[in-house]
C-alpha cells in the first residue's frame, strides 16, 4: 500500500468520526442502491416479453449491469456496518426504502406471470430519463468526499455510456416514427415528468449531503440533466416542463406505493422462506 493510500484511509476514518457524516453517507448509498435495485428488478420482469428477441438480450444485459451496481452500493453499506447486503436488498420494508417512486411503478397492467400488458413506451422513457439522471449523479460522485463511493462511481460510469446510448436510440426512434408511436411516447413522457422530481430529490438528508460534500445539490443535478436533454427535446420538437413533479410522494423519505409493496413481496419470496439459510 502506498503512502498516499494510507493517508487517504486515515483521512476517511477521521471523516467517518465526524458527527452526521456516517449517517449522511449511509442515506446517500441507500438512495443509490435502492434506485438501481428496484429498476433492475422491473427490468428482470420484462425478460422474454420485450418487443423483439434482440432487445430482450440487450435489455437483460443492462438490467444485469444495473443489478450489479445495486449490489456494489449495498456492499459499501455492508462495509459501513449497515448489515448484510442480501438482507438490505431483500428484507427491508417499503417504508425503509429510499428509491424514487418513479422507479418502483409497475411496468404496466398485469404481473410478469399473468397477463403482463407491459408498456414499452413508459419503459423506454423511464429508463432513458433515469440513466441520464444517474449519469449526472455519478459524474458528481466522482468528486465526493467519501472515497469508496468515488471509486464505485468510476466503475459505474464506464457502463453507463452504453445504457444511455441504448435508451436514447429507442427514445429518438419511437418519437421520430410519428403516428401511434409518437402519441404513446408523448403520453409516457407526460406521465414520467409527473414523478421525475423524485429522482433528483435528496429528501430530508439534502442539507447533510451538502454539508459533507457528498454530492451536488438537487438544483445543480437538475440543471445538468436539462442541459443534456434540451437538445434532444428540441430536435424532436418536444417541450420540457419547467418543474418536475413528485405527485406520488418522495421515496427518499420512505413514501411509497402499493407497487413497491407487491414488488418486495415477490423479490423476497424465496429469501423469506429461511432468512438464515445459505442460498
Amino acid at each position: 500500500m502506498g503512502r498516499e493510500t494510507e493517508d487517504m484511509i486515515v483521512n476517511q476514518k477521521d471523516m467517518l468520526q465526524k458527527e452526521g457524516y456516517l449517517e449522511a453517507v449511509t442515506h446517500l448509498l441507500f438512495q443509490l442502491a435502492d434506485d438501481d435495485f428496484i429498476l433492475a428488478y422491473r427490468g428482470s420482469e420484462w425478460l422474454g416479453l420485450a418487443p423483439h428477441i434482440e432487445e430482450d438480450v440487450a435489455f437483460s444485459s443492462i438490467s444485469q449491469d444495473t443489478m450489479g451496481h445495486a449490489a456494489m452500493f449495498y456492499s459499501l453499506l455492508e462495509e459501513l456496518g449497515a448489515g448484510d447486503a442480501d438482507k438490505l436488498a431483500h428484507a427491508r420494508l417499503a417504508k425503509d426504502r429510499k428509491n424514487a417512486i418513479l422507479l418502483e411503478l409497475a411496468n404496466g397492467p398485469g404481473t410478469y406471470l399473468n397477463e403482463p400488458q407491459y408498456d414499452w413506451a413508459f419503459t423506454v422513457v423511464r429508463n432513458f430519463f433515469y440513466v441520464q439522471a444517474k449519469k449526472v449523479k455519478i459524474l458528481s460522485l466522482k468528486n465526493t468526499s467519501y472515497q469508496p463511493m468515488a471509486e464505485a462511481a468510476v466503475k459505474v460510469n464506464m457502463e453507463l455510456y452504453y445504457h444511455l446510448l441504448h435508451w436514447k436510440t429507442w427514445f429518438m426512434q419511437l418519437i421520430g416514427a410519428g403516428g401511434e408511436a409518437r402519441t404513446r411516447m408523448e403520453k409516457a413522457v407526460t406521465d414520467v415528468f409527473k414523478d421525475l422530481g423524485g429522482l433528483f430529490s435528496q429528501g430530508a438528508t439534502a442539507v447533510a449531503f451538502g454539508e459533507n460534500q457528498l454530492i451536488d445539490t438537487e438544483e445543480q443535478l437538475i440543471a445538468a440533466w436539462k442541459h443534456e436533454m434540451t437538445p434532444i427535446f428540441d430536435s424532436l420538437e418536444m417541450k420540457m416542463p419547467k418543474k418536475f413533479g413528485m405527485e406520488k410522494g418522495d421515496g427518499r423519505n420512505g413514501e411509497h406505493t402499493q407497487d413497491l409493496e407487491a414488488a418486495i413481496e415477490t423479490l423476497s419470496e424465496v429469501y423469506r422462506l429461511d432468512v438464515k439459510a445459505s442460498w
Binding site: S60, G68, E269
Partner: peptide, 20 residues
C-alpha cells in the same frame, strides 16, 4: 425476480439472457 440473493439474481438473469 424471486432469486433469493443478489448473486443468484445476477446469475439467473445472465443465464436466461443466454437462452434468449
Amino acid at each position: 425476480p424471486k432469486a433469493p440473493t443478489l448473486k443468484r439474481k445476477l446469475g439467473i438473469m445472465a443465464k436466461v439472457q443466454d437462452e434468449m
